[in-house]
């Protein structure tokens, strides 16, 4: 199970959910499951901007993003 599942959500909800998770957790590893290019790119931009490294893994029609800091 991913830590945050943003599948089926549209802007700005995916970024908002991930932002809250990032702020709660502060550091470590967070996995995010996304199913749209917009969510994938926006989350990547948010996390990178906050100093997290982002690994993107394609899983069929979805992407698993692994955020680490």
């Amino acid at each position: 199970m991913p830590d945050v599942d943003v599948c089926g959500l549209v802007c700005p909800e995916p970024v908002l959910l991930v932002k809250r998770k990032i702020e709660d957790q502060g550091q470590g590893t967070i996995t995010v499951l996304a199913d749209s290019e917009a969510a994938r790119e926006n989350i990547k931009r948010l996390a990178t901007g906050k100093g997290w490294t982002v690994k993107v893994e394609e899983q069929g029609e979805q992407w698993l993003l692994t955020l680490t800091k």
Partner: peptide, 19 residues
């Protein structure tokens, strides 16, 4: 580009994201 004209103002206010 995922162009939008609500998004620019929304993302600046919510996330300081200027994309």
């Amino acid at each position: 580009a995922r162009f939008c004209l609500v998004g620019p103002i929304r993302d600046m206010i919510m996330f300081r994201d200027s994309y």
